[in-house]
Structure formats: C-alpha cells, structure tokens
Design a protein around this nucleic acid. Structure first.
Lengths: 207, 207, 207, 207
DNA sequence: CATGAATGAGGGTTCATTCAT
DNA sequence: AATGAATGAACCCTCATTCAT
C-alpha cells in the first residue's frame, strides 16, 4: 500500500528535509519551513496534521522512494557475476547516499519516540543485508570470494563510512585534491574506490 | 591551553550530556537539566553564559578528555610492532566510542552553527589520522602491510562503522547472538572482530 | 416583520443550537457545526455571513418561534378566569422552558456584545410581563387575588426558578424521587407544583 | 484543608473573574487578562499551570470564600426566631449574590468538563438547603409557619430569582424607579422585598 | 449555487534568560 | 555566590473566513 503525496506536499517535504538535515527537527520551526517554501505557516498543520506528523510523512516518503529505487536497481544486476554485482551495489549505495545526503543526515538522529517509523528504515536495511548476503554466498560458491564475511558487518561499514564522510565534510575534504566546490563529487569518487578495496579485500577477492 | 572546569560545572555537563544524547540539544530544556542536576534553572546561564555556550563547553570538555586519553594511549603502544599497534588502536577506539556512546551520539548532530567547536573535533580526527598513518607507513616499510591504504579512509571506516552500529542498535542487534541486555558488549566484540579483519585485509596483511 | 429561513439554514441552526448549548459559542467551532450538519465549512459564512451573524439568526429564529407560540397560547386562555389563566401560564412556561432547555441554556450566557439581539428577548419578557399583569389585575378586581404583587417580580421568580433547576440538574435531582433518566420529567412536575404554590400564595389566593 | 493564594494570584483571579463573567471563559484570552492585570502573558501559565487550571483555582477560590462567609453568617443568626432567621437569610443571600454578581454570572455556565469543580458548588447548595430546612422546621414547630414548603424549592426560587435579575439587567431595570447608575442597589432592594413576600407567604406566614 | 484549498490572525504554552535580592 | 520570580519572544496549532473554481 503506497501512500500518495500531492505536489504541494512534496514541495513542503523537500524544503523541510533540507532544513531539518541542517538544523535538526526541533531546531527547525514550522515558520522556517513555511518561509523558505513560500507558504503559509498554517499549511504544515493543514496538510499533515502537525509538525510531528509531517516528519513521519517525510520519513516515509523518503524511505519509500529509497526502497523502490533499490528494488529497481537489484533487478538491473540480477544476472551479473557476484564481483560485478558487489561493485555495482557499492556504486549504487554511495551514489544514492551522496545524492540524498540531506535525508541520511537526519535519518538516524531524529524521531526518537517514533519507533514505528524507525522500523521502516530497519526493513530497508534488512533487505539490503539480504541482497548482499546472496551476492557474497554466490561468490563463495563460485570461488571468487575466499572469505564469507558477514553481510551485516559489510552493510555497517559501507553505510557507516559513507555517512561519516558526509557528516564530517570538514575533515574528509582536507585529504581531497581539487577545489572545495565539488567536494561531494570528489569525495564520492575517492570513497567509492576505498570501499571497493575495503570490501573486496575483506572477502578475500584477488585484486 | 587547557580549560579548567569547577566541580559543579562538571556535574552539570555530565547531566546535560546524558540528556542531550537522549533527546537532542533543542529537545532538552535547561529546566530538564537543572531538575535532574538538582540545581536552579538560572545556573546554566549563570555558569556558562547561555545554554548554547554550555554546549560549547560540554563539547570542549569531552573532546579535550578524549584527546588526553588518546595521547596517553599512544604512549602505551609506541614501542610495539605496527600490526600490534593497529590492533590496539582498533581496540581502543571501539572501546572508547562504545563507552562514551552518549557523546558520539550527539557529537555529529548538534552545534551546527558552531564551527569553532567543530574544529576541536576536527583536530582530534587529524591527530588520529596522523597516528594511523605512521603505523601504516611503518608496516609498509617493515613489509607486514602490502598495500598502503589511505589512513583518512581507514579512519572513516573505523569510526563510521562503529557509530553506525551504535546508532542503529535495532538493526545490528538482529544479527547478534546472546540476550538483548548486553547489546553493547556483544556488539562491541563482534564489531571489533569485523574491523580487524576489514582493516588488516585492506592493508594486505596476511592473516 | 418576520424573517424567513430556508430549510438548509434551519438545519444548520438546529445543529448549531444543540452544540452551542453544550459547549458554548466560543467553544463550538464552525467545523464542529459543519461536520455534524454534514455540510461544508464555508457554508456558515456563506449562508449567514459570519459565525456571529449565524448566532444572531439563531437567536432571532428561536425567540421568534417562542413569541409566536406564546401569542397562540394567550389566545387559548383569554376567556378563562384569572386563577385558571395563571395556572395555565405557569404550566405553559415551565413546559416550554423544559422543552427548549437547550436554548435557554445559552440564551443568557452568550452574545454579550449583541445588544440588538438581547432586545429581542427583552421584548418577549415584556410581553409576558404585560400578560401576567393583566391576569393579576383581573384577579385583584374579581377578588380572588388579595395582594397585587408586581408582575415583573413574578416573571423573575417563575423563569429564574425554572432556569435554575435546569442548569443545576445535579443539585435538584438529589431531592427528586424516581430514577435519574427522566430527570426532566420529574423535575418539571415537582417544579410546577412549587411554582403554583409560590405564586398563588404570593398573590394571597386562598388555596 | 484550605488552599492559600498569593497576593499576585488573587490579583489575577479578580481580573479574570470579571472578564470571564463578561465574555465567557473561551471568549476571554489570557492576553486579555494579562493586559488588564498589567502582567506578562506567561504569568497565567506560570502561576496556575494553564488557563484551565486557573479557572479551577478561581472557582475554588470564590466558592471557598462563599462557604466561609456563609458559615460565619449562620453563626450570627443561630439564636434568633425562625422568622427572623429566614429574613436574615434572604437578606444575606441577596446581598452576597449582588456583591459577587461577577462570580455568579459565570458559575453556572462554564467548566463543562470539570465535574469535580461543580461538586464544590453543589456542596454549598446542599449546606444552604440544610440550614433553610432547619429554619422552616423550627417555624413549623413554633407555629409561625403553617406550610412546610420544601427547602430545595425555596433555594431554587431564591437563587434563581436573584440570578435572573442580575443577568437580565436590561429587563428588570425597566420596572425600577431611580436612575440607571445604582441599578444594583435599587434592584437589590426591590428584589429583597419581593423574595421576603414570596417565601413568607409560601410558608403560610401571617404577614 | 456550492466547494475545498488556502490564509492571516490570534490562541495557549514553553522557552532561555534576566534581575533584584 | 546563588536564587527564584518574572519576562518577552517564539513555539505549534486552530480558528473563522476568503476566493478561485
């Protein structure tokens, strides 16, 4: 059962996501959001019921999209070899997280009492873990991977590492060549290389 | 230049850290803090100037301690072999992050406009990176490490992976054996194993 | 000059009266009314101009009906003896007030700045007073009443006493025999007896 | 157990009572009250917790005082003859209701969900009823009263009639001699006469 | 003729902070 | 040095009403 959002709602959610990622949920007032979105203050309550419910909607909206995108993606790689699949997965996840860095900046920090909401993300992580596990298993069977590392650990490392660089921009950019302005692009590239090396060598792949 | 804190200030900071880690900076009122610390509401402003300045102090207080602890730690391993040093570093960092998971739960999410404050953490990360780099370099020279991975990437992976498991308790615990209550202990152990494998194989160490 | 209301308007007014009697004018939102009346929120403004004007209309609607009913009633007793007329008046007023207790629950409490509206009620009270005065006068002349009590005082006592029991249900029901469910019926009966005794003895009627 | 109020609280309650009597509870904003009381808007929440709790306090404050005053009063008449006692009671109640007409203007109309609060008033009415019953009984025994009217009916008539004239000032003043300005004084006097006549004749007292 | 999306005003409450003591 | 009473700003939300359709 997929929830539908109107254009205006999506507009509000996009603005809200950006601000909340920057200043936190409590640090972002509905006035901030409505001002930036050029709408009336009352609209947030009008459209979503309350600020908190808007947050739930935002969460569901983004996670829902993420899951869909991921599901489509898995289709595109389903016939490849494990090593190719793994490479594509790392590439995909990195790209997505960098693209929606807003979202993942707040996804793990807010909604403390909204356990139901957190479950939505949990489910996605589990799906991701399962996909990864199949790839690893297949690689082990075919002999390209020598070490059957646990996929939940790989997931933690992949997502954890990416989120760390996104959130610690001022740290990671020190070690980047190139100008500041395309930090994200450069960081993404560097990171992708690192993660590939990291995961493949973890699995005992002969590089 | 080391800042000194009075006993009362430290008392307040400890309480504040706990509450802020749980409910966020904006989600924690000075009344919450003063109530739990059994002090007057006015004391936060009185001692620190403002709530925000208190946060800066809290930040500095904790990072300062972390740096001191890390400095002491590096002394204890300075004479070991690189592979031993690396193992100890992973062990130390994991232990520290799990021990002060409070702190690291809020360290990256709050104080968004406080760039001076972020610099404090940045410096620590740089120190950490430098230490790691020396170890890697030494290992390359001595031949135990075959691949000179970038230490900033290793830092990102180590810290990123740990923080991810701390913040996504509900995900990671699914894959843990043992009862729920010592999640942190179990997670720490599992994670340590994973990180060792991960970093060592990344460096081309023959396990 | 009699104002006409459309069926839809009357529908709205009936719902509004009920809600306002329960929750007060300010306590009743146009959304409450429109929801219960199964109409659009905008309809109240659309039909009556504003919520306040709707209230004026409601008031006029009910007082107008009350006056008409009272006028009809006076016709039915115009040929009786004074003592019979008085008895009938007490009976009628009690019955009406109990029947439309909704209305009289809010009639004296709302519309504070709407003096024009209050005048509508005032006129009715004056009419009532005049009718009563004629009855008393006739009774004095015929000798059945020995004391020419002021009719405005009698009005105050009749209406005041009735309204008191309606609004202090929890008090008056303590002294009532019978079950709780037909409080109004029992209270009305008890009250009617009391008022008859009260007014007749006030007028010096030999019971 | 008697609740104490500070001077500032009483100040607020007095202002609030006046405004609420005029415009109703929901019609009176905390900003109205704070403006008229020359205090900060936040003070109502600060002193009472919320607007609604302020109302509960106001209610208790006034009813409490009323009960105390009534208790003192009953002491002063305890040795008189029944007819004197009855006269004094009517005099006292009339005077009190006119004096605190603010209070009794809102006492029966607000606090719809506050049943506990209504009980406070109920108790007072019951006390009043009991006192009256003793007087009537004593008069019956001594032979000055010939008819044992129910005291709850007498209470309804006394209070109902008074409240009616207070709330329908524009009606009752038509029948008053004298200028408008001392309406209350004149009305009180006229009403007292009427009530005496009314109650005494009801009890069959030979005037 | 009737609607529902959208608005601005104002609602009560909570907040961090100040200041007289 | 420390307090608690008091403040004004800002919070989220609900309101009656408007207006394009």
């Amino acid at each position: 059962m997929k929830k539908k959002f109107t254009e205006k709602q999506i507009h509000i959610l996009d603005i809200a996501e950006e601000l909340i990622a920057q200043k936190g949920f409590e640090g972002t007032s509905v006035r901030d959001i409505s001002a930036k979105a050029n709408i009336n203050v009352a609209m947030i309550s009008y459209y979503f019921g309350s600020k908190e419910k808007m947050m739930v909607n935002l969460y569901q909206y983004r996670v829902q999209k993420t899951r869909e995108t991921f599901a489509e993606f898995t289709q595109t790689i389903k016939d490849g070899k494990p090593e190719m699949q793994l490479k594509e997965i790392i590439n995909f996840v990195t790209k997505q997280l960098f693209k929606f860095n807003y979202f993942h900046a707040f996804v793990t920090q807010e909604l403390r009492h909204q356990d139901r909401v957190k479950d939505t993300l949990l489910e996605f992580y589990q799906t991701f873990t399962k996909v990864l596990e199949d790839v690893v298993q297949k690689g082990i069977v075919s002999g390209v991977f020598k070490r059957a590392a646990k996929s939940e650990d790989i997931v933690s490392t992949i997502i954890g590492t990416i989120v760390f660089t996104i959130r610690n921009k001022n740290y990671y950019e020190i070690y980047l060549k190139g100008n500041d302005e395309d930090y994200l692009a450069n960081a993404e590239k560097k990171l992708k290389n690192h993660l590939n090396l990291c995961v493949f060598s973890l699995l005992g792949y002969q590089i």
